Amino acid sequence: MPRCARLKSNDSIYHIMCKSISDTDLFRCDADKKVFMGYIKKYQEKYEFKVYAYCLMTNHVHLIIDSNGFDISKIMHSINQCYAQYFNRRYQRKGHLFHDRFKSIIVKDERYLLTLSAYIHNNPMAIKEYRECPERYEYSSLSVYLGIDHDKFETLDEGFILGLFGPNVKKARESYYKFVFSCKDNKIRKTIEFEDQPGEYRSDRTILRREYSPQDILSFLEENLGVERKLLYLKYRKESKEFRAIVVYLLRCFCGYSYSQICKIVGNITSARVAVLFNIGYELVNNDSKYKFILEKFLDNCENRDKKF
């Protein structure tokens, strides 16, 4: 029986749920949880999505992710595939790790978002030693929300939800604390799983536009790197390799193109090579002083869609 198409849009906020298969724990130790959070950080840097809350339990994960204009399926496929490969390699096992596809529910409005965050942050109460103090659980974002700990995984944007409680950070933390601990688990679960509300939550967030064309990308790079696009089709030259890598990175991130689609644009190249070039492009625009201005300038230009590159 075919699976139902996933309901999604690239400007939505999602409740993401990932669960391991029945006979396997998703995380066998704290080191595994740190690796999973590391993969979130890795792909957050590449795809520019936002994380509003998280909680990693023994056999499942809850996340609130703002896709920020990118495809949520590509985000989660990247994270989960890398973690499954790590897990199987570390524990010398084969086969699937995750139970079916990850589940994703579009966050519909502010009330749903707040209730969802409380539900996620109350998850550690299922663990005996955290039943009365879920804020002490290291692999939940609650401690960051309450100002007890810093964002050690460097992935969290807690300000968006806290901002719904007012502009004063201290008072917002206090209000959020009261809200989370006043929520009853059964009431939250009913709201999360069964309540049907129309529409989708978009608020006044700034969303990265991702519908640029290859022509936009190439014109921008020609102007700002001072090169001709024919360099894209030349091989065995360092400057050509770097140019191709940056093109691939921008096509992937800002056109939303798959590796196979990029193959057709670049020409005479495999999907595996595109994946390699994507990683090279990521390193160049984030770490190479020669190219670090590219991403910032491209994002600045993106603020006005009609501006000519």
Rank of each mutant, 00 (worst) to 15 (best):
Lys152Pro: 00
Tyr259Arg: 05
Tyr176Cys: 01
Arg131His: 13
Arg273Trp: 04
Glu45Met: 14
Glu132Asn: 12
Arg28Val: 07
Ala53Asp: 12
Thr155His: 01
Leu218His: 01
Ser20Gly: 10
His15Val: 06
Ile65Asn: 08
Lys94Leu: 11
Asn123Lys: 12
Ile105Val: 15
Asn301Gly: 14
Lys307His: 13
Asp100Glu: 14
Ser22Leu: 04
Ile106Met: 03
Lys33Tyr: 06
Asp32His: 12
Val227Tyr: 06
Glu283Ile: 09
Asp300Val: 02
Leu7Ala: 13
Thr206His: 06
Tyr145Val: 00
Ile75Ser: 01
Asn304Gly: 03
Asp306Lys: 14
Val144Phe: 07
Asp30Thr: 09
Cys133Arg: 11
Ser271Trp: 11
Ser143Lys: 03
Arg131Trp: 14
Asp149His: 04
Lys187Ser: 15
Arg202Phe: 14
Asp204Phe: 01
Gly163Lys: 07
Phe181Trp: 11
Cys133Trp: 03
Ser67Glu: 01
Ile106Lys: 07
Tyr291Pro: 02
His60Met: 03
Gly226Lys: 04
Pro2Val: 11
Glu211Arg: 03
Gln44Val: 03
Leu277Gly: 09
Lys238Gln: 13
Ile40Asp: 02
Asp149Ile: 05
Glu195Arg: 05
Asp25Thr: 11
Ile79Ala: 09
Leu7Glu: 14
Leu284Val: 12
Ile120Phe: 13
Asp32Lys: 13
Leu97Asn: 03
Cys255Ser: 15
Tyr177Gly: 05
Glu200Leu: 11
Thr191Ala: 12
Asn10Tyr: 08
Leu250Lys: 10
Glu283Ser: 15
Glu138Ala: 15
Ile105Pro: 02
Val144Arg: 07
Lys33Ser: 07
Ser203Glu: 10
